[in-house]
């Protein structure tokens, strides 16, 4: 068997990753399930949220960063829950201090609680401040190709359009916009949000995304650890299919078995 040709490496902020699946740590039943799902996913980059110490942690549970060690994983702190640029920048600076000067952040500035749609105006403002302050910004945004282009031009290291609204699991709602974003991408483009099941992740990768970021699709599956494993395979399958190049679609049939030598 011929070896499969090597893929080009997935590089973010100068570091190379083997896995093209990035996972969140929210919505799990407990720390054990979080750890097992993340291990099964094969992800090397893991998102976390930054919150006040009296919020969101059961005192009997270990600290998240004891379970998901920064020595083993690249921790990607997010600004989820921030509704303006000032809050998002503050959160990133706290995250950098929390992670001993680690500059990689996921910028996410939301506009509305019902849709959790990104506020692109505040996102652009925050990105500008953060880049000037030395952060490596991976930015969550709408699937607007013009905004995606602007965010890349200003120096974001990755642009992460939504495929569907956060937590909906609706899948790739507008593959055509993603195709436009991907066609003119100058930085890695990752789908972030909207994936519901393995086939959605595969479609995102077949479209040519560098990677996919997801949380709910794994954490809210009936069996999160099994779904994490499914996602790992889905991402690999989609990437290989993208590299292999799909056959053209045709309207009429084309026989797979030869017509010669038929028994008549």
């Amino acid at each position: 068997m011929n070896p499969v040709p090597a893929d080009k490496p997935f590089v973010l902020a100068g570091r190379t990753y083997q896995s093209r699946l990035l996972v969140g740590t929210g919505k799990y039943k407990d720390m054990t399930e979080t750890r097992e799902a993340i291990e099964a996913s094969g992800a090397e980059i893991v998102t976390v949220a930054v919150r006040r110490t009296n919020i969101g942690q059961n005192p009997d549970e270990p600290n998240l960063l004891d379970v998901i060690s920064p020595d083993r994983y690249t921790i990607l702190p997010n600004t989820a829950g921030c509704y303006d640029a000032v809050e998002a920048v503050r959160t990133c600076r706290l995250a950098r201090e929390l992670l001993d000067g680690h500059n990689l952040v996921k910028l996410e500035v939301l506009a509305d609680q019902k849709t959790l749609f990104p506020n692109v105006i505040e996102t652009l403002k925050a990105a500008e401040t953060l880049i000037a302050d030395g952060f490596d910004v991976m930015v969550y945004t709408s699937d607007d190709p013009i905004i995606a282009r602007q965010l890349a031009q200003m120096g974001c290291i990755a642009v992460m359009p939504l495929a569907g609204l956060i937590g909906t699991g609706l899948g790739i709602c507008n593959p055509y916009n993603l195709r436009i974003i991907l066609e003119e991408a100058t930085v890695p483009v990752l789908v972030d949000a909207g994936v519901g099941t393995a086939s959605d992740a595969t479609i995102a990768m077949e479209l040519g995304c560098e990677a996919v970021l997801m949380n709910s699709a794994i954490a809210h599956a009936q069996q999160p650890v099994m779904m994490a494993r499914a996602m790992r395979h889905a991402i690999e399958a989609g990437r290989l299919a993208y590299l292999a190049g799909r056959m053209p679609k045709k309207l009429y049939a084309s026989a797979s078995s030869p017509m010669e030598g038929l028994v008549r």
């Binding site: 969140g24 740590t25 919505k27 979080t34 998102t47 976390v48 110490t53 960063l65 997010n78 997801m214």
Partner: peptide, 24 residues
């Protein structure tokens, strides 16, 4: 962190103490 021991608090200071928790 290195400056915590040398940073005194004053009346009315606004202090935030944060940590990492699960998030997407």
């Amino acid at each position: 962190r290195s400056q915590h021991p040398a940073t005194p608090l004053k009346e009315g200071d606004r202090v935030e103490v944060v940590h990492a928790i699960g998030g997407g």
